[in-house]
């Protein structure tokens, strides 16, 4: 049986992992390859890195950091930030990443999803989307709007319509980050994940809001969501208690959620 995945997500600034709350006030945590290696040995299932300044600095993701991580970590990892064309994707994949996350760039130029999927396969292309609740359900039938540029710019796109478009263009996986829940430690946006799973068939990743183990069991038992992003829970110095992947997996197993067992 295919198990649910726990994905550690790192925001990288100049090769170091930082932690933000609702996209602001980043604090420094550790060098990216050191933390990645720790998480690998702690048996996290997967890693995602966002080079959070690459896009606004108008440069490609930090390839040296990708290479350093690839030499130490033997689980899949996704990278995102500043990748705007096939050449950028090629460099990140050759540096050792499994998948490329596209976000703001994909909204500006949806063809990048199609081109990437055609060149490297759909499984390499993760459509990552920041969404925010909207009261105006005439303009936004799903009740959610897509934001880009680190959640600063509204796009006018309905979230679910955008996911469907991304899937039809060839995205192999979709990561949905709830701007409202991000950094609140109050749990994932479950209604959002339910809407998404009814609309698309590719695997979904829930992001934004995890603070306690029950948030993971909630999203996994109440939705078909295949993977969940955790970051604060694992390593944020702002939290009184951090959890190891082992603790989280044992908790989830007790709740009847199929996970890769800790060995």
């Amino acid at each position: 049986m295919l198990t649910r995945r726990l994905i550690a997500c790192f925001d990288i600034v100049e090769g170091r992992v930082t932690k933000a709350i609702q996209f602001q006030d980043n604090i420094d945590v550790a060098p990216a390859d050191v933390l990645a290696s720790e998480m690998y040995h702690a048996q996290i299932d997967e890693l995602i890195f966002y080079d959070i300044h690459a896009s606004s600095d108008k440069r490609l993701i930090d390839i040296e950091t990708v290479k350093k991580v690839a030499a130490r970590v033997f689980i899949p990892f996704t990278v995102g930030g500043g990748i705007k064309d096939l050449q950028g994707m090629y460099e990140a994949l050759k540096a050792g990443a499994e998948k490329i996350s596209v976000d703001s760039m994909a909204v500006r130029n949806p063809e990048i999803i199609k081109d990437g999927a055609k060149a490297f396969g759909s499984q390499c292309i993760v459509l990552s989307t920041q969404v925010k609740r909207e009261a105006d359900t005439v303009k936004f039938p799903s009740g959610y709007q897509v934001y880009i540029d680190g959640a600063r710019t509204a796009t006018g796109l309905d979230a679910i319509e955008w996911l469907k478009r991304g899937e039809s263009l060839g995205a192999g996986e979709i990561c949905l980050n709830s701007i409202d829940n991000d950094g609140t430690l109050g749990g994932y946006d479950i209604p959002l994940m339910k809407k998404a799973e009814a609309a698309v068939r590719v695997p979904l990743i829930a992001s934004g809001g995890a603070g306690r183990p029950e948030h993971l069991s909630d999203v996994f038992t109440q939705t078909q969501t295949q993977a969940a992003i955790i970051s604060s829970m694992l390593y944020s110095p702002r939290l009184e208690k951090n959890y190891t992947p082992q603790e989280l997996k044992e908790y989830l197993s007790e709740k009847g959620v199929a996970v890769r067992p800790f060995m």
Binding site: L2, T3, R5, Q123, G172, R201, V202
Partner: peptide
Amino acid sequence: VRVPQMGWNEVNFIDGDSGF
């Protein structure tokens, strides 16, 4: 099933070994 299959799944070898 959702396609692609993406994630950790159990592999059962014919000699009796298994793993994720």
